[in-house]
C-alpha cells in the first residue's frame, strides 16, 4: 500500500490515541468524563444511527445547507459577475464587501431572529450571509481572468451577446464558481452548528446542545464525529465536482 493511504490512516490513528489518552486523563479527576472516551462514543454513534434518532436531524441540517448554499449562489454569482465586469461597481462595493465579510456572520444572529422570527429563516440568512463572500469573490476573479482568446474566438464567430454569455462566459467562470462553492460549503458547515443552537428544534447544532442538557456526553462526542465526517464528505463532493468540470 502506498503512502497515500498509510499516512492519513496514521494521522487519524494518532488523533484517536490522543483522544483516548485525553479522556482517560480527564476521567481521572472527573468520573463522568469517561463518557467522552472513543469506545462509548462509538457505541453511542452506532445506536443513534441504528435507532434512526439522528437521521431527521441530519436531514434538517443538510436541507439548511442546501438552501443556504443556493441562496448564496443566487446572490453571489450575479454580484460577482457585476463586480468582474464593471470597474465602477467593483470600486463602489469592494470596501463594503470587505467590511461585511470580516464580521462574523453569527454576530447577526440576534438581529436576524428579531427581523425574521424564530425558525429556519434566520438560519438560512446566516448561512447564506456567511457563504456569499467566497462565491462572489471567486466569480469576480473568474470573470476578470476569462481567457481573452475565448472572447476573441466568440467575436470571430460573430457570436451574439447571448451566445457569448451562455457559451463562453458562464462555462468559462464555472470552475471559479465551483471553487467558491467549495469554500462556501466549508464555511456553511462550520457556521451551521452554532446557527442551529438558537430558536430551532432540530438539526445537528440543536442536537449537540440537547446532549449537553441531557448530560449524554458520549452522544455529544458521537455527533461531533458525525459532523466532521459529513463535512469531509461534502467537501469531497465539491472537490470532485470541480475536478470533473475541468477534466483533470
Amino acid at each position: 500500500m502506498s503512502a497515500r493511504f498509510i499516512l492519513p490512516l496514521a494521522g487519524l490513528l494518532g488523533a484517536l490515541l490522543l483522544w483516548l489518552a485525553g479522556s482517560a486523563w480527564l476521567a481521572h479527576g472527573m468520573p463522568i468524563a469517561a463518557d467522552f472516551a472513543p469506545a462509548p462514543s462509538a457505541d453511542a454513534l452506532w445506536q443513534l444511527l441504528g435507532s434512526g434518532e439522528l437521521w431527521p436531524h441530519v436531514l434538517v441540517s443538510l436541507k439548511r445547507v442546501a438552501v443556504g448554499l443556493l441562496l448564496a449562489i443566487a446572490i453571489g454569482v450575479p454580484l460577482g459577475v457585476l463586480t468582474g465586469l464593471s470597474r465602477r461597481f467593483a470600486q463602489g462595493t469592494t470596501p463594503l464587501f470587505q467590511f461585511l465579510r470580516m464580521v462574523s456572520p453569527l454576530s447577526w444572529m440576534p438581529l436576524a431572529v428579531m427581523v425574521l422570527g424564530v425558525g429556519d429563516a434566520p438560519v438560512y440568512f446566516l448561512l447564506a450571509f456567511a457563504a456569499v463572500w467566497p462565491i462572489l469573490l471567486n466569480t469576480a476573479s473568474g470573470v476578470a481572468q476569462l481567457d481573452p482568446n475565448w472572447l476573441l474566438l466568440a467575436r470571430s464567430l460573430s457570436a451574439t451577446r447571448r451566445e457569448t454569455v451562455l457559451r463562453v462566459v458562464l462555462p468559462g467562470i464555472t470552475a471559479h464558481i465551483l471553487t467558491g462553492v467549495r469554500l462556501a460549503i466549508g464555511i456553511i458547515w462550520i457556521v451551521l452548528v452554532p446557527a442551529e443552537m438558537l430558536g430551532v428544534s432540530a438539526g445537528l447544532g440543536y442536537f449537540i446542545l440537547d446532549t449537553r442538557d441531557r448530560l449524554a456526553y458520549s452522544e455529544l462526542m458521537a455527533v461531533i464525529v458525525l459532523v466532521g465526517a459529513l463535512g469531509y464528505a461534502l467537501d469531497h463532493l465539491a472537490r470532485s465536482a470541480h475536478a470533473r468540470w475541468l477534466h483533470r
Binding site: 481567457d147 482568446n149 475565448w150 476573441l152 474566438l153 464567430l157 460573430s158 457570436a159 451574439t160 451566445e163 457559451r167 463562453v168 462555462p171 468559462g172 464555472t174 470552475a175 468540470w245 475541468l246 477534466h247
Partner: peptide
C-alpha cells in the same frame, strides 16, 4: 492564434465543432 484558446470544458471534438453552431454561421 498563438495560443490555442481551447475551451477546457469541451473535449477536442467539442472544441472543433464549437464554431459550427452559432447564429451567424
Amino acid at each position: 492564434f498563438q495560443q490555442p484558446g481551447l475551451l477546457p470544458w469541451l473535449d477536442a471534438a467539442g472544441n472543433v465543432g464549437f464554431g459550427l453552431d452559432f447564429e451567424h454561421q
